[in-house]
Design a protein around this nucleic acid. Sequence first.
RNA 1: UGGCCCGUAGUGUAACUGGCAACACGCUUGGCUCUGGACCAAGAGAUUCCAGGUUCGAACCCUGGCGGGCCAACCA
Length: 797
Amino acid sequence: MSARKPERAPDFIREMVAADVAAGKNEGFVATRFPPEPNGFLHIGHSTAICLDFGIAEEYAGTCNLRFDDTNPTTEDERYARAIEEDIGWLGFRWNGPPRYASDYFEQLYRHALQLIRDGKAYVDSSSEEEIREGRGTVTEPGTPGPHRERGIEESVELFERMRAGEFEDGAHVLRARIDLAAPNMKMRDPLLYRIRHAAHWRTGDAWPIYPMYEWAHPLSDAIEGITHSLCTLEFLPNRELYDWVVDNTRPGIEAGEPGSWSPRPRQTEFARLNVDYMVMSKRKLAELVREGRASGEQGIHGWDDPRMPTLSGLRRRGVTPESIRHFCDLVGIAKADKRVDIGKLEHAVRDDLNRRAARRMCVLRPLEIEIENYPEGKTEWLPAPDFPVDVGRRGSREIPFSRRILIERGDFEEDPPADFRRLAPGREVRLKYAYLVTCREVVREPETGRIRRLRCTYDPATRGGSAPDGRPVSGTIHWVSADHGLPCEARLYDRLFTVPNPEEDADFHEHLNPGALVVVPDACIEPSVAGDGSGTHYQFERLGYFVRDRDTGEGGRPVFNRTVELKDPWTRSQLRAEARAEEPAEVPGGSAPPGERAPQVVGEDTGRRDRDGIRRRVPELDERFRSYVSELGLPEEDADLLTGDLAVAGFFDAALAEGGSPRAVANWVVNELLRELKGRSIDDLRFGGPELGRLVGLVEEGDISGRMAKDVFRRMVDKGGDPEEIVRSRGLEQINDPEEIGDLVDRAVEAHPDQTARYREGQTGLLGFFVGQVMRATGGKANPEVVGRLLRERLK
RNA sequence: UGGCCCGUAGUGUAACUGGCAACACGCUUGGCUCUGGACCAAGAGAUUCCAGGUUCGAACCCUGGCGGGCCAACCA
């Protein structure tokens, strides 16, 4: 039994939070929030976000708010909010204080908006929806200002106040931020902040004829609540720039008009959403299934909590436990790459949990009667059966009745069994679990159809409890129920809702609905011990799978059991695989691509080079330098090209070169190291200039410091500025070149790692890097790696 | 098509920030077993998307390409 908390490498968000706390940001306090819109039920895709938001708050003794993002009155409803609360609580999380609502902040949000207008950063636009869309431009073309963009502050204030007073029709005006209509990020092209909507809100009723957009309400709500880390999914990444804009252009003290800024200042971080094979995760599509299900009757989805649904309420009714969902989220992790997780992973998490907690019971789904000829008519024995197998290590047992007529699973008998069949067959003896060994003597058929009606068997009275005194081998153990005592019940066998791994890929996901996602077995039979159990009780039906008692009852009030997940069953799967193989025609040799051969990749045009060529055509000075770098300095064209894409970089290079280094080395440094630093910033923001870099290159070329040390020095110049010689001197970074001194270090490294030494000598020469790393680390990077490598090769021979 | 994000065994996530490509699921084989479950052991499976470059050394840094995703709602 492994501990419940597996050691898991922290994800990038936890690393970030840990760093923030360590750096003392917000006095080390962590406040997160989970912000669902109450317009549908939570599904398993949300569980990663829930586990992350609430989990991080727990780990840092911080808080996590539950905030309903209820800014769109036409789609939202109270019943969704309540269902969301129930699901989060069921998962085992508790939110900080009462649930929050964006609608609680409507008044504040409104006042902040007025302030924004007064600051000249927002305006009322009276254009039509279509005009606004057109004015925004496209992803390739900038937008164009509409006629109201320069509307005066007073006029905008007045219009906005009248919007709030309800004087205008829906769509007559909107409030927009004045940012940048030419911004490459479409979200920054004067986003809408408020729209007029004469609709009753489920919480605020008719109090508001205008409603804030997500773009306005969300960052402000975070700021108002003092959220430190605002975590959301990847599709909001373009929103971050706007999120920051809103937070930076508003301030807590509205009336006073004092400058001030939000503290804590919330930061948005995005992670990839969770997708699971054979499921759909879009609330719209799930709502569609619920709506259509109501219309289509019996076979249709019965509601948000239909056990075929990926909703938390559906999974709950299916018998999935909150612990398994949380464990599943741990297994999946948090990262930034889009993911589609194997449904088998969820099933594993479910089995792993249920194996420990679900008591074993016996239930026969498709009964076949056996009559035990030598067992007295009318006799009943109550045989003890443990609730758990020994390996689970839990106590508890019940008694199950045994009689002359027993029901077994139809699939557990085979007249002409395959070689490795470990169940009942004519003349064979098997064990009825916890009862007796029985032998099949005769097959009784329906006279008309030839179908097997029942089996005649005999039992060995000496095997009571299931073990033979003589220790003879048995061909298998099967489950059973006494025909005279068993309880009729209904079993609902669930399977994946869709037949393809990614149903959302195609235009109409309905085509891939799995008609076999629910198979109802109305006439199953179960041992009587379960009669008094309540709905929600988990079981493992021996050899079948995990089941949970449903709240429904079947025909005549019989209990209903939902199959949560089947047991792993290599035998059935290998049978199915064999069948599939038999049906599929043998592969034609040479029909498909030969293994190991890869389709050649088409290499496209170098657009970066083309762009820089364009710049050089327009700036003769750069073009001149490009040509002289190639012809006079002997640089490769590729380097010369990168150095002459803009004047500042070329100038930096020239200044560095003037310090006397070789053109090739200086170019390498500029291209490989400087360009990285220039990614998020301009060359003017650098804390050092070309001459400093040139001197650094000089130190390397003179052999004063190693290339590796030079990178450390460079790092320091980036962070704090400074002169390379000075840094080297003050920190004692001079390179160790002395072979004798290095030889000692090499000896020590070899002696300290006998395992690796042996493996190296066996041919794992890739370990050389490991040894070099050891020596480099021991010297703080000061050893000359070339010398280290040479000596190591000699020593390890 | 412009901008941004992302490419590591079949799947998901790591790799001490440039030094032995690891863990989990799945798969195969064996052991054990009164569940063809669980458990235990072993194994297969990777051109770290591709091509150049920097470096003693690249999954990691630079350049380019390829592929996937997101963004032009008065939705969130």
